[in-house]
Simulated scan of single mutants.
Amino acid sequence: MPEPKNPADPNAIAVFSARGVQIGYLTADRAPWIGGMLRNGREIEAIFQAATPAGAAIRVGFDGEQPLLPAMTLARREPPSAARDGLWPDETYFDD
């Protein structure tokens, strides 16, 4: 939902759950683009993919397209050598 009167950013787009609970905001770099689509009547649907240090990664579908999560792999990966020393690398999230 666009928030044109938001004092921090007039391009702010609030994100709500299917139950109508606000769960956050789009990033400032994506908000103007998505806001333009909303103003032009485009249908946008999103699903949660994963928690990230900044909030969440989501998958988005436009114009009635159903957003899909990437296929999950069930294979257990051996942690990198740094992880065995107690240092884990940053998570990497893949976009289509």
Rank of each mutant, 00 (worst) to 15 (best):
M1L: 10
M1R: 12
E3V: 03
K5N: 15
N6K: 08
N6M: 02
P7S: 09
P7N: 09
A8D: 04
A8V: 07
A8C: 00
A8S: 04
D9V: 08
P10S: 11
N11W: 12
I13H: 01
I13N: 03
V15A: 03
S17R: 14
A18E: 08
A18L: 13
R19A: 06
R19D: 15
G20S: 09
Q22K: 14
I23W: 07
I23S: 04
I23R: 14
G24H: 07
Y25M: 05
L26D: 00
D29L: 12
R30M: 15
R30D: 05
W33R: 07
G35R: 15
G36R: 05
G36H: 05
M37C: 05
M37L: 15
L38P: 12
L38T: 07
N40V: 02
N40E: 06
G41A: 05
G41S: 06
I44H: 11
A46V: 07
A46Q: 02
I47Y: 00
I47R: 05
I47W: 00
I47E: 01
F48Q: 08
A50E: 11
A50Y: 05
T52F: 11
A54L: 13
G55M: 04
A56R: 00
A56Q: 00
A57P: 02
A57K: 02
I58Q: 03
I58L: 14
I58S: 02
V60Q: 04
V60A: 06
D63V: 06
D63I: 03
E65R: 04
Q66M: 01
P67S: 01
P67I: 00
L68G: 02
L68F: 02
P70Q: 02
A71G: 04
M72T: 07
M72C: 03
M72K: 13
M72R: 08
T73S: 13
L74T: 12
A75W: 03
R76G: 09
R76Y: 06
R77D: 15
R77T: 15
R77W: 08
E78M: 05
P79W: 07
P79E: 04
P79N: 02
P80Y: 12
P80N: 10
P80H: 03
S81F: 14
A82E: 15
A82T: 11
A83S: 06
D85W: 09
D85A: 15
L87I: 10
W88L: 05
W88R: 15
P89R: 11
D90W: 13
D90F: 11
Y93S: 03
F94S: 03
F94D: 01
D95R: 06
D96C: 10
